[in-house]
Amino acid sequence: MDRREFIKSCSLVAVMGLLFGCRKSELLGDIASQFSVPELKRFEDEVKLAMSRAKKSLDLVRVSAPGPLKIPGASPVNRFGMAIDLDLCDGCGKCILACNLENNVPLVPAEDATRGRFMHWVEMRGNAPLMCAHCGDAPCEKVCPTGAANHTPDGISAMMYKRCTGSRFCGANCPVHARKFNFNDAQSLGLARQFNKEVPLRDKGVMEKCSLCLHRLQNDRLAFKTRNPLSEWRGRGVKTACAEACPKNAIVFGNWLDPESPLARLAKTRILYAPREVAALDPSVVFVRGRR
């Protein structure tokens, strides 16, 4: 075999290999939706592990009831938020599991779990659930280079996953570390499961956090506007997954600007608190304790 023939056969083998590779990747595309999915038991166990590793301190300061947002284009009638009743909450952690199943929050690999790096949108802090406060003056949105973290007119600090390029500036700028970064490709590692078809799974390299069950609000808004195209939507009757799952009804979801909302009614008779870190940032998700 001379030199020319040798090179020829080499390149032939390379081309064959390439072609075979292409065929394989096409095949992979077909079965991409059939990645192995984890058992429900693993999600339950992860929540238990996260609960056992929860930080004990939650430093609360008094805040006043959230008013209309101060951002341009804000809705004068809607500002969604939540209140967590610390007199009722016993820290059972059912809200964490409910949130994970509702929003398809992925598991983390064993190494991350031992370090306490969970993807949970709700976590236990001082025996009470802590999630994104949906600050009216959100520090995370100010540093987002792509506009993926932005505010809706009705007070939700929303996250557009497809716009996120994973700079993680928002996570660094969040004082309560409510944002979680997808370091792992959970779907191909078999750590993600789509329990709820309404919520898309997130890709690797994307920041995620509590969305105040945005999909539920969107669905309700669209259904309401279909039935009553002329009246104003106030988000009545919508509940987040955590509020629904709470056995003590300690989590109250509602509209701060709607006097009929259970949230606004609760705030009239109770004292509102927020974590010290976000208290000055006009949080929409607050804690209540004691009566006034």
Binding site: G147, P153, I156, M160, E198, V199, P200, S211, L214, Q218
Partner: peptide, 10 residues
């Protein structure tokens, strides 16, 4: 109509 991201995206 609404043009903010979360009106149509989730």
């Amino acid at each position: 109509a609404a043009t903010y991201c979360a009106a149509c995206h989730r």
